[in-house]
Amino acid sequence: MRRRDFVHHVAWTGAGIVYMLGAEGVVRATADAAPGTFSFVQISDSHIGYSGPANDDVRATLQKAVTGINAMPNQPAFVIHTGDVTHLSKAVEFDDARAILSTLRAPLITLPGEHDVIGVEGPKRFAASFGRKDAAGRGWSSWDQGGIHFVALINVGEGETMGMLGEEQLAWLQHDLAARKPETPLVVFGHVPLFAVYPEWGWTTSDGTKAIAMLRRFAAVTVLNGHIHQVVEQTDGAIRFATARSTAFPQAAPGAPGAKPGPLKVAPDSLLGVLGYRTVQVEGAGSWRERTLAQS
């Protein structure tokens, strides 16, 4: 089987979504990656600073996630946090988040969510705490690792629209992708879903279709986002989209009757069962697999 075919095969059939904080309160991090394989972890929506009925200790649940990732026998190449690290962009929230996330054994990459760029100071605090020196524009970046081309997009903080990339970033993306061969596997990160999950709740990127059009010539593309605090998957041609769970609190299913976006209270003994993170394993041949880490 050619590598390209295998990438396709796994992308279409690979099934599993992720999941992780054990229902009994202990992170059950199984050996997700075999020795010698390349893997990474996506963590999202920690909302440090939130305290309410949906979760009265968001620092503790983020700490559980970090502890679980650190316990993986084969450490991921990196951990990417896809935004809303904080709840209100306050200095103490960034300090608390950084104190926990800095204990990760693997290198950390962090993207901002709309909760991280509130007011004049929010973007400055995010940049001071988690900004990447090699990033372009307002913080977008790309790199090659494990045979994959990774792209980290910023789709918050552009004008008054929550999910928006902007012309400058789209031009950068077009230039960045132009040099890549169609068979190069792509993984694209961002906070707000690049595809239209539920625009009525702002769960979309208004100019996301322009970015998606640039991705269509590639044979295997995975787009991983946060923002909606639950796993929703969609496949469009060779592009597989997936959103991630939060480490803080769940939100209602898109368009659920009588529901609105925002923190969703669940039974206390159910909370850890709806929080989590995602591991992605890239086998030696460059294929993809997502794997459930913890099932009670």
């Binding site: 709840h87 209100l88 962009s89 509130i118 007011g119 929010g122 008054e160 976006p261």
Partner: peptide, 22 residues
């Protein structure tokens, strides 16, 4: 009065509550 964080921010950026918790 909501259970989510909000701001009241002038479109022309002349004033901004910044983040308001419940």
């Amino acid at each position: 009065d909501d259970d989510d964080a909000h701001t009241a921010t002038a479109d022309d950026a002349s004033w901004d509550s910044e983040g308001l918790n419940q």
